[in-house]
Lab assay of single mutants.
Amino acid sequence: QLRFETNGEEQAKKVLEEAKKHNLEAHVTIENGKWVVHVK
């Protein structure tokens, strides 16, 4: 499982879109005010 700390909602959405293009499972959590994308 990969973990990407992003700078906010915009970047998190871009990472999610990329993951979906590659048929990867991804979800976002907010940790300590940071948007974190988890990709399987």
Rank of each mutant, 00 (worst) to 15 (best):
T29G: 04
L16C: 15
E18V: 13
A26Q: 01
K14A: 13
E9S: 06
K34A: 07
E5M: 04
I30H: 10
H27D: 05
N23A: 08
E5W: 02
N32A: 03
V15I: 15
L16A: 08
L16T: 03
T6D: 05
A26I: 05
E17Q: 13
Q1V: 11
T6Y: 12
R3V: 13
H22K: 11
T29N: 05
E5P: 06
N23W: 08
K13D: 06
E31N: 04
E18T: 12
V15Q: 04
G8E: 12
W35M: 06
R3C: 15
G33F: 00
H27V: 12
K14H: 11
K13F: 11
L24K: 06
F4R: 03
E9P: 15
F4M: 06
A19G: 01
E18A: 15
V36Y: 05
N7S: 14
K20W: 14
G33D: 10
E9R: 05
V15C: 15
W35I: 08
V39F: 05
A19Y: 09
N23T: 03
V15F: 14
A19Q: 02
V28P: 01
H38R: 05
E17S: 10
V36T: 02
R3Y: 09
V15D: 02
A12H: 01
V39W: 02
F4Y: 14
L24I: 09
W35P: 05
L16Q: 06
Q1M: 15
A19P: 00
E9Q: 09
G33N: 06
V36R: 00
K21R: 13
I30M: 09
Q1A: 13
I30Y: 13
K34T: 06
I30T: 07
L2E: 08
E9V: 08
K13P: 01
A12T: 05
K20L: 14
V36W: 01
N32L: 03
E5S: 02
H22P: 01
K21I: 08
E25S: 12
I30F: 12
K34N: 10
N32M: 03
I30S: 06
E18L: 15
T29H: 09
V37H: 00
E25W: 04
G8Y: 13
K14Q: 12
A19W: 07
E9T: 04
L24V: 07
H27P: 00
G33V: 00
N23V: 02
A26W: 05
G33P: 02
K40E: 13
T6G: 03
E18R: 12
W35A: 04
E18Y: 15
W35Y: 09
A19E: 02
K14S: 10
Q11V: 08
A19K: 03
L2S: 10
E25L: 11
V37R: 00
K13A: 11
E25K: 08
H38Q: 07
E25F: 05
H38K: 06
A26D: 02
N7M: 13
H38T: 15
V15M: 14
V39L: 10
E17Y: 04
K40Q: 14
T6F: 15
A19D: 02
L16G: 01
I30V: 13
E5D: 05
V28L: 11
V15G: 02
A26F: 06
V28G: 02
A26M: 03
N7Y: 12
N23K: 09
W35G: 03
G33S: 02
F4T: 06
N7I: 12
V37W: 00
A12P: 01
K21D: 07
F4E: 04
I30W: 06
V36H: 01
V39A: 02
A26E: 02
G33W: 00
L2G: 10
N7Q: 13
W35S: 04
Q11G: 10
K14Y: 05
L2W: 09
E17N: 10
E10Y: 06
K21Q: 10
H22W: 05
E31T: 04
N7E: 15
H38L: 12
T29M: 08
V37E: 03
E10N: 07
I30K: 10
G33Q: 01
V15S: 02
K14T: 08
E25Q: 12
A12R: 01
V39M: 05
G8T: 15
G8H: 11
E5A: 04
A26S: 05
K21W: 08
E9W: 14
T6S: 05
V36F: 02
G8K: 08
A19T: 04
K20M: 12
L16I: 12
K20G: 07
T29I: 11
H22M: 11
Q1I: 14
V15Y: 14
H38D: 05
E5L: 06
H38P: 00
T29L: 06
N32G: 10
R3H: 13
L24R: 09
N32D: 14
T6P: 02
L2Y: 06
E25I: 13
V36G: 01
L2A: 08
G8N: 15
K13H: 12
T29R: 07
Q11H: 12
T6Q: 03
K14F: 06
F4L: 09
Q11L: 08
V39T: 03
G33H: 03
V37G: 02
K13M: 14
G8I: 12
E25M: 09
K34S: 07
N23R: 09
L16W: 08
K40V: 13
N32T: 01
A19F: 13
T29K: 06
T6A: 09
Q11E: 15
F4H: 06
Q11P: 03
E10I: 09
K21V: 07
W35H: 09
L2I: 15
E17R: 12
E31F: 02
G8R: 07
V36Q: 03
Q11N: 07
N7T: 14
V28H: 01
Q11Y: 07
N23E: 07
E31H: 06
G8F: 13
A26N: 02
V15T: 03
E9K: 05
V39D: 02
H27L: 09
E17W: 05
V39R: 00
E18G: 08
T29W: 03
R3F: 07
V28I: 14
V28A: 07
I30N: 10
K40L: 13
L24N: 04
Q11S: 10
K34L: 06
L2V: 13
E17M: 13
N32E: 11
V36N: 00
T29S: 11
L2T: 13
E10G: 07
Q11R: 03
E10S: 09
R3A: 08
E31I: 09
Q11F: 09
K21F: 10
V15P: 00
E9D: 04
I30G: 03
K21T: 06
A19H: 04
E9M: 10
K21E: 07
R3N: 08
H38E: 09
H38M: 12
N7F: 11
A19N: 02
N23H: 13
V37N: 01
K14P: 01
N32H: 03
E5Y: 07
V39G: 01
Q11D: 14
K34V: 13
H27C: 14
L16E: 04
H27F: 15
K21S: 11
K14V: 11
E10F: 05
E5V: 14
A12K: 02
K21M: 11
N23Q: 09
K40I: 14
K14L: 12
K20D: 05
E25G: 05
K40R: 11
E5R: 00
E10D: 12
E5H: 04
G8V: 11
V28Q: 02
V15N: 02
H22Q: 11
E18D: 11
R3E: 08
V28R: 01
E9F: 10
E25V: 13
T6L: 11
H27Y: 15
H22D: 04
K14W: 07
H38G: 02
H22A: 11
A12S: 04
W35L: 07
E9N: 03
V39P: 00
Q1T: 14
K20T: 10
V28W: 02
H38I: 15
G33T: 00
K13Y: 12
E10M: 08
E25R: 07
E17L: 12
V39K: 00
F4K: 05
A26R: 00
K34G: 05
N7H: 12
F4G: 04
N32W: 00
V28Y: 04
N23L: 08
K21Y: 11
F4A: 04
H27I: 11
V28D: 00
H27K: 10
A26P: 01
E9L: 08
A12M: 06
K34I: 14
Q1Y: 15
H27Q: 09
